[in-house]
Design a protein around this nucleic acid. Structure first.
Lengths: 164, 164
DNA sequence: ATGTATGCAAACCATTTGCAATGAC
DNA sequence: GTCATTGCAAATGGTTTGCATACAT
């Protein structure tokens, strides 16, 4: 082990090992340095079951007694996005969210335009459609499908408010 | 005519008339006031052929000698989004963009993750499948599909840089 | 040894907020 | 007359930047 990045960040074994390899390869390829911070951040990200934002990530790292500056967090997330390991979601009401790319590709996002809640939905047909798309003069890397609408809670609330 | 919102904002006739009606209906329904500013902003929006951001909109209104405060601009765009007349895009590199909803629904967005350029692409199959989606406990209103990747320019540049 | 990456604090800037004045109803 | 909407200016807060220090190579 070239450096001791593995602190007491609770870790999701398999997922992380795989991504660590990808990341290492990417960093080498781009001649970027393999720092303790970068790997600790990636490891921490693996512990989120789904979306997360800067605040949550920062907090989780602090909780694990691993301190990084916000500047480094922003830098590292950018590297991870460029490397294709994570995906960035910018949705209306909510703050910028990130998600492991391997997770993001498997579903679309149902976004409530009232309360901002995000639900995930898998659909094989759509996935196939997107995968089968023929695009010229553009090299697709990944996609994100957002369907905006009303979640059941907000719809119910709205119906009551508008008189039965 | 209840008020003189029609200044010298250059106008795209048909498109605006139709949207004006929708907007009027929406405002009445929600018991919101029909102000000169709101209609002037909508009219101005109709003159953009595609995406636009706050700056461009503000500028275009100023150019037409119609001054609104930024607070009003933000308020009005929110009302227009809620009313389903325009759609909000928040993409990585670029600033928040808006687009007439009637335009947005007809295409997906190819976003270059390098330079941020947006290209539009229509695909009938995909459109049909999204429209035909069956979702429980969620009422879809509209969707947005973003495909991230490399535009031809950036790809070319990258290939040259990485040695032939 | 070299130059990239980090940490900190200050700077930035799009968006939001507070409040008095306006005007739609 | 009432209360939503506007304008202005100040406040906010997530993100970026500058620079000295640390450290991967």
């Amino acid at each position: 082990m070239p450096f001791a990045w593995s602190r007491n960040v609770k870790m999701d074994g398999k997922k992380y090992i795989e991504l660590q390899n990808l990341f290492t390869k990417y960093l080498a390829e781009k001649k970027l340095r393999k720092t303790e911070e970068r790997f600790a951040i990636l490891e921490c990200i693996c512990n989120f079951p789904g979306h997360f934002d800067m605040c949550q990530l920062y907090q989780k790292l602090e909780d694990a007694n691993f301190h990084v500056s916000r500047a480094t967090l922003y830098n590292t997330l950018e590297v991870l996005v460029d490397g294709g390991l994570i995906v960035r979601h910018q949705l209306p009401t909510q703050s910028v969210q990130y998600e492991l790319r391997s997770l993001a590709e498997t579903h679309m996002h149902l976004v409530c335009s009232k309360c901002g809640a995000i639900r995930e939905l898998k659909d094989a047909t759509l996935r196939r459609d997107v995968a089968g798309l023929k695009v010229t003069r553009f090299t697709p890397e990944y996609y994100a499908l957002y369907i905006y609408g009303l979640c059941s809670k907000c719809k119910y609330r709205l119906q009551r408010k508008n008189g039965k």
